[in-house]
Amino acid sequence: MLLSVVTLRTALEMGAIYSLVALALFISFSILNIADLSTDGCYTLGFAVGATVTLAGHPFLALPAAMLAGALSGFVTAFLQTKLGVESILAGIIVNTGLYTVNLAVMGWSSNLSIFGTDTLLSLAKGLSGAKAWTDWSTLIVLAAILGVAAVLAGLFFRTRLGLSIRATGDNVDMVRASSINPAFTITVGLCAANSLTGLAGCLTGLVNKSCDINLGTGMVTVALASLIIGETMFGRFSIGWRIVGVIAGSCVYRIIIALALAANVPTECFKLVSALIVAVAIAMPQGRKLLAIQRQKLLRRKEGAKC
C-alpha cells in the first residue's frame, strides 16, 4: 500500500482544515475577485485567539472567538480598500504586517504557545468514547463535520440576495452600482465572511497540533490558492455548489500529494519546492489540456491527409 491508513487520515485532517482556508480564498479571490494577502496573518490570529481562549478554560468558545477575530481582521482590510481607497493587494499586505504584532500580543508577547494538557474541543470529543475506532477517527470526524456545516452554509448563503450581490460585485461592479447595491457593503461582508473562515482554520490547526508558533501562517496563501486552483481545474466553474465541492476536494488532493511526497522519502528541506511545483502544475493544467487538444487535432488532420 502506497499510504498507510494513519498517513491518509492525517492528510485528510489537514485537508479538512486547509479546505476552510481554500473556501475563504474562494470567497475573496474567485468570487469577489480580490487578492486578499492578509490570509497568512489572519490564520495565525485565529490560532492565537483560539489557543488563548482554550487555555483560559473555554474550549467551546475558542471557535466562535477565533472566527470573530478573523472577521474583524477582514473588516479592517475591507475598510482600508472601500473607504480609504487603498489598493486591495496593498490593504491585505498592510493588515498582514500589522497582524504580526497583534498576534504576538494575543500570545502574551511570546513567539510560541503550547496547549498540551489543556482540555480542547478535540480532546473532549475524543474522550466521549473509549473505543479505539472512535479515538482514532474522532478528530477527523469533528473536523469534517465543522467543514460540512461551513460548506453547506456557504452554499446556501451564495444563493440568497445578499450572496448574489456579493457574487455580482466580483463579476461586474458597474452593474452592481446600477442595481442599487452598495459595493463597499458587499465587499465588507464578503471579506469578513472569508476571514472568519481563515481564523477558524487557524484555530483548528492549533487544536490539532497542540502547539504553534508565530510563523504558523507563513505561505498559507500559496497553499490555499493551490488547493483552490486544483479544485477548479478538476471540477470546472459551474454552479456554486459544485465549485465549493471542488474547493474541498482540491484541498484534500493537495494534502494527499504532499503525503505521497513524504511517503516517497522526499526530504523535508525540499517541501517548499514540491509545493511550488504542485501550484505551477495545477495552474498550467487548463492550458496544457488546450495544447494537447490542438496536437490531437493536428494528428487527426495528418491521418485524414494520408488517406486522400
Partner: peptide
C-alpha cells in the same frame, strides 16, 4: 451590452 449584466451568473 456587457456592462449591464453579470456574465458568470
Amino acid at each position: 451590452p456587457m456592462k449591464g449584466t453579470a456574465p458568470h451568473m
